[in-house]
């Protein structure tokens, strides 16, 4: 059974068996507008909580997406190289950004659940 967490930076993290899939929320993609490029990490890269893991670029601006916890990137969503707009059309599905193996999944315990996130964005 997967557990989904949300950050104040408008990311979602779905954790299953020690591996986290990370993406941005529907609210975030709407704020950013049409994405035209996603700078993806390479598998094997080690990241610390707060590192920039991905940069998403809209027509107007580039925005950083941070690693929500320490770990190692195991896969990036390479479908976004040819179709970055997947993040707009399916932010919680086909538009996921990367998967990472968590070093310590207790780092996620302070994060919000879906209800908490929805309350935050109002």
């Amino acid at each position: 059974m997967a557990t989904t967490y949300y950050t104040e930076d408008h990311e979602w993290i779905r954790v299953e068996g020690g591996v986290a899939t990370v993406g941005i929320t529907d609210y975030a993609q709407e704020q950013l507008g049409d994405l035209v490029f996603v700078e993806l990490p390479e598998a094997g890269r080690k990241v610390a909580k707060g590192d920039v893991a991905v940069v998403v670029e809209s027509v107007k601006a580039a925005s950083d997406v941070y690693a929500p916890a320490d770990g190692e990137i195991v896969e990036a969503n390479t479908a976004l190289s040819s179709d970055p707009a997947l993040v707009n059309s399916s932010p919680a599905g086909d538009g996921w950004l990367w998967k990472m193996k968590l070093s310590d999944d207790s780092q996620l315990t302070g994060l919000m659940n879906e209800a908490g996130y929805k309350a935050m964005i109002g």
């Binding site: 104040e8 930076d9 408008h10 990311e11 941005i24 975030a28 704020q31 950013l32 601006a61 580039a62 925005s63 950083d64 997406v65 941070y66």
Partner: peptide
Amino acid sequence: MAAIAAACV
């Protein structure tokens, strides 16, 4: 995603 948060603010 600091930039998005900033844009909202």
